[in-house]
Computed example of a mutant assay.
Amino acid sequence: MKIRAFNLDKDFDVIKTWITDERTHMMWCANLIPYPIEKETLRSFLSEIAERFGDSPFAAVDDEGRAVGFYCYSLNHETHEGMLKFVIVDASVRGQGIGKEMIKLAVCKAFTDPEAVAVQLNVFPENARAKRCYEGAGFTERQITPNAFKYKDESWGRCNMIIKR
């Protein structure tokens, strides 16, 4: 697996198939991007978070060059902590260690910047598979905020996780 810059025109048609229902979509983006995801909406959103937070989107690709994962990353220059956001893996390869490998590669890439002392992310504890994936990649819980997000009749917490250099 390799990490490369995300190319919306090349990767969107693959990535949009990974989210097949609204609940999965909400687990992925916490309603920051309208469902169902549309190419131009994602383009605008990625541009906005690049401008506001310095986020860069990345794709994880398999040995054949096929996108199998996606995430955004930025570094907070005040706290010196990187932030992984909008992490998702192709549903057809979930449970095969692809997510854990992608997260480990993302952290290694983040730590090539000597300014980065840690990398953090947020996950809904109700997304147990994702949380286990992050733990398997070396992240630990830092803080849990109960009832941070409402989806229909559900209330989800927010777990902030961190890995230090």
Rank of each mutant, 00 (worst) to 15 (best):
K104E: 15
K131Y: 04
K39W: 09
V107N: 00
S56Y: 00
S155E: 10
L32T: 01
E126P: 03
F45C: 03
A91D: 11
A59D: 05
A128H: 06
K104C: 12
R142H: 15
E135G: 08
G95E: 09
P125G: 11
A137S: 04
N76D: 15
P125Y: 00
R129A: 15
H25M: 06
T145H: 12
G95H: 05
A110T: 07
A137D: 10
R23H: 03
V87Y: 01
M83T: 11
G97I: 08
S74D: 05
A116Y: 00
D21T: 13
R66T: 15
R52H: 05
I49F: 01
Q143L: 13
E141F: 01
A67V: 14
N127V: 01
R23W: 02
Q96G: 06
H25P: 00
V89W: 00
F45H: 07
F86P: 00
G136E: 06
E48C: 07
S56C: 07
H80Q: 10
I49Y: 03
M102A: 15
E38W: 00
K150R: 10
L32H: 03
L105T: 09
T24N: 12
I33Q: 01
T17S: 10
C108P: 04
E22T: 03
A128P: 01
D153M: 07
I98Y: 06
G99A: 02
N147M: 11
P114D: 13
R142G: 14
K100A: 13
K85L: 14
E48G: 02
E51D: 14
W18C: 10
E48M: 15
E135K: 08
V68T: 15
T17F: 03
I19S: 08
